[in-house]
Design a protein around this nucleic acid. Structure first.
Lengths: 197, 197
DNA sequence: CCCGAAGTGGGACGAGTGTCCCACTTCTGC
DNA sequence: GCAGAAGTGGGACACTCGTCCCACTTCGGG
């Protein structure tokens, strides 16, 4: 088994443990147990436990939220309202499907914010979130031939703040209806800054 | 020294450690070191380490966000916009003043969400947040003789989601100007649901 | 064939964790 | 004044943690 393959297996196992049991339970031993390896094999693939954490943070930035938001957002939408409402709803569905995933993201962010060596990672993470959201907004404007009356970089921050708040609200209450109403309110807030061009 | 007094000292010490070093560093030894006590004294006052955590979560619900939001919100505001914008700004100021506090709240919430015995606490925490925000909104409506065109319980969830998102955004970027613009966008979103009565 | 390098596993080390026990001091009530 | 309770501190227990070392197997090239 090559080192690269071993890293991949450990990485996948670590993500599973993180989503299932949380960051506090993401010990080296838990990871190798999940991957079915011996303890020493870990340090053969990764120099350090923290190195794996860094890699997880950096990697999950790319696929995670951008896929969740942009994925179903533009499929069959006929109006900007449908597009935005659909994107937020599909994101909520992603949270509902496996809450541990988003919870793990939060834990990773909190963890990174506490260690000086990793705070830059958290900043990068959110910068990419904002970029992905801005891209989605620009895409909506292009598709429906409308323009945003506020900078999309600012509106993107609003979107990310709302998805974070929405996630936290749902995780703590598990109230689907309230989350749906929150999505509608958020859609209203965004559409208020949309004008025909 | 009475047991009650000792509990109070340990409680205060634990909060300081939590805000300064994070939940991961909030060990029994760190707490008693901060309080200048011996290790055994802890278990004389608290039966268990987790019991202290529960108490911290339950207690910080009351004073924390309600004070931050309602505190300066209605002081010298002459319009609903000023009231809401001022309340959100004063909340951001609270986050900026000591970020560790809000970060600790997030960590406690995440922690509580992961253990089945404490998830109810997290739910309570956010229920009270929502209640406090709804109260603030009702207060604004009363004071300026206006009415909200959406249920304040729903709008309250929007407020809490936005404060959470705002906090996370500022913690990860430390961008004061972007946070200010985010507050303005949030204020717009709320005022859109305000009508003269 | 066989030697050396790469890969792999078990075990151990030192540090840190929550909890507990047992001496010791301090103070109250009779 | 003194017995007994309450309060207090040091040390130890059992455990988990990340990391590392050292035998052991596996395998490819001379």
């Amino acid at each position: 088994m090559s080192v690269a393959e071993r890293r991949e297996l450990l990485f996948a196992a670590a993500v599973r443990v993180l989503e299932r049991d949380g960051l506090a339970a993401l010990s080296t031993r838990a990871i190798v147990a999940e991957a079915g390896m011996s303890l020493a094999s870990f340090h053969y693939a990764y120099e350090t436990h923290e190195q794996l954490l860094v890699e997880i943070i950096a990697a999950t930035i790319d696929g995670e939220l951008s896929a969740g938001l942009a994925g179903l957002g533009d499929a069959a939408a006929r109006t900007p309202r449908e597009a935005i409402h659909g994107a937020l709803t599909s994101y909520l569905e992603l949270v509902r499907t496996d809450p541990g995933r988003e919870q793990g993201m939060f834990e990773l962010t909190q963890h990174a914010l506490r260690r000086p060596t990793m705070t830059a990672l958290a900043a990068d993470q959110y910068a990419k979130y904002h970029a992905a959201a801005a891209e989605l907004l620009d895409h909506v404007a292009d598709r429906f031939e409308v323009t945003w009356s506020a900078p999309t970089t600012d509106l993107a921050r609003l979107v990310i703040a709302m998805t974070d708040g929405l996630t936290l609200a749902w995780l703590t209450s598990r109230d689907d209806e309230a989350a749906a109403r929150l999505i509608t309110l958020t859609t209203d807030a965004l559409l208020a800054h949309l004008e025909n061009s």
